[in-house]
């Protein structure tokens, strides 16, 4: 996403794409995890500094000299700002060229010295980069939402939850409604309890803090230090290595703790789904529930399939809205249901 955004900033289909050349710049190339990856994050400061380098380098002149038998850099008295300007002026006429020329002109007009002009250019580049990154965040969210919908669709099919069928079954069966009400209530209560429970959040905060501490001093911020690097540290500084090892153990134990809490939540949810299914809510791949029942029945027509698919699509869309949305809605319903005077058990039994 970052690569695509930077690449599209400098794409005009005619001139050399400075955004793509940026990834050959040593500062950017060193941020890569391995030879086939691109940096996951580039700060606006690093971006602006490197892109100015790339543009100004493009205006450098090289020549082949017989004496050296090699291509060498021709001496050049122009400063970095002037070279940037020369590189942009040499571009073929496109909208991008105008954007860059105007940017350079603004810096030139407002500043008298080259160093101030370069600083201003860096600021302008950073602003442009930040604006593009804001857009990229929006694109990323849309992309994630689309992916989530696909995942939700797969989950809806895997669990075979046809919302229309579930709704009609509950609507027609007061007994079933009465039976699932306590389950819904217990789910809502659990959710509320979990919302107030800060154990996981605190554990995660602690995990992140220790991890940051561990990564401090390591060149590659994306990589967790491996055992070899710890061994190297032991040879250099045994005290630091002992602390690092201790921290690793702590990180691992926190990780296990968080994992076990999450596993418990998943198990509890699956149990609740089983309970619902056991009570007769039409979910799961059972022989008496669509679509399996369609295969064994003669009375099924095309519209039944359409209703079934529509039910699955509704479920998928509902899932893609996310668990917090539905839990909050459930809580509100339960609260509404709990509002008012509690029925008197004695009088109702009479």
């Amino acid at each position: 996403m970052l690569y695509q955004t930077i690449s599209s900033m400098f794409e005009d289909k005619l001139n050399v794409n400075f955004g793509q050349l940026l990834y050959d710049h040593p500062v950017i190339a060193n941020l890569r995890k391995d030879r086939s990856s691109f940096p996951q994050y580039i700060s606006p400061e690093i971006f602006s500094s490197a892109i100015i380098d790339v543009i100004s380098n493009y205006a450098r002149v090289y020549e082949y000299t017989e004496d050296a038998g090699a291509i060498v850099l021709k001496p050049d008295n122009r400063n970095i700002f002037e070279r940037c300007k020369a590189a942009v002026l040499n571009m073929k006429q496109t909208d991008l060229k105008l954007v860059l020329i105007n940017m350079l002109d603004k810096c030139d007009l407002e500043n008298t010295t080259p160093s101030k002009a370069v600083a201003e250019l860096q600021l302008q580049m950073q602003q442009w980069f930040n604006a593009q990154m804001d857009r990229a965040t929006g694109w990323y969210k849309i992309k994630t939402a689309v992916r989530l919908r696909w995942v939700a669709f797969i989950v809806a099919i895997a669990l075979n939850v046809d919302s229309i069928h579930v709704f009609t079954t509950l609507f027609n069966s007061p007994n079933l409604r009465a039976q699932i009400t306590p389950i819904a209530q217990s789910i809502a209560d659990n959710y509320k309890k979990q919302q107030n429970d800060t154990t996981t959040d605190e554990a995660l905060k602690e995990y992140k803090a220790i991890r940051l501490q561990l990564l401090a001093g390591h060149d590659n911020l994306h990589k967790r230090p491996d055992n070899d690097s710890i061994r190297k540290q032991i040879s250099n500084d045994s005290l630091q290595a002992t602390i690092a090892l201790k921290n690793f153990k702590k990180v691992d134990s926190i990780g296990h703790e968080v994992d076990s809490i999450r596993a418990q939540t998943v198990t509890a949810t699956l149990d609740q789904l089983n309970n619902l299914s056991g009570l007769g809510v039409p979910i799961g791949w059972k022989s008496n529930i669509a679509p399996r029942i369609f295969l064994s029945s003669d009375k099924v027509d095309f519209t039944d399939w359409i209703w079934y698919i529509l039910g699955i699509v509704i479920t998928a869309l509902s899932i893609s809205m996310g668990a917090p949305f539905w839990f909050d809605l459930l809580l509100k319903f339960i609260n509404v249901r709990k509002a008012g005077v509690k029925p008197d058990n004695t009088s109702s039994s009479q």
């Binding site: 690449s7 599209s8 794409n17 493009y58």
Partner: peptide, 11 residues
Amino acid sequence: NHIRIQTQVAQ
């Protein structure tokens, strides 16, 4: 949106 020939050659 690939790297076009102009940039390939510059590299």
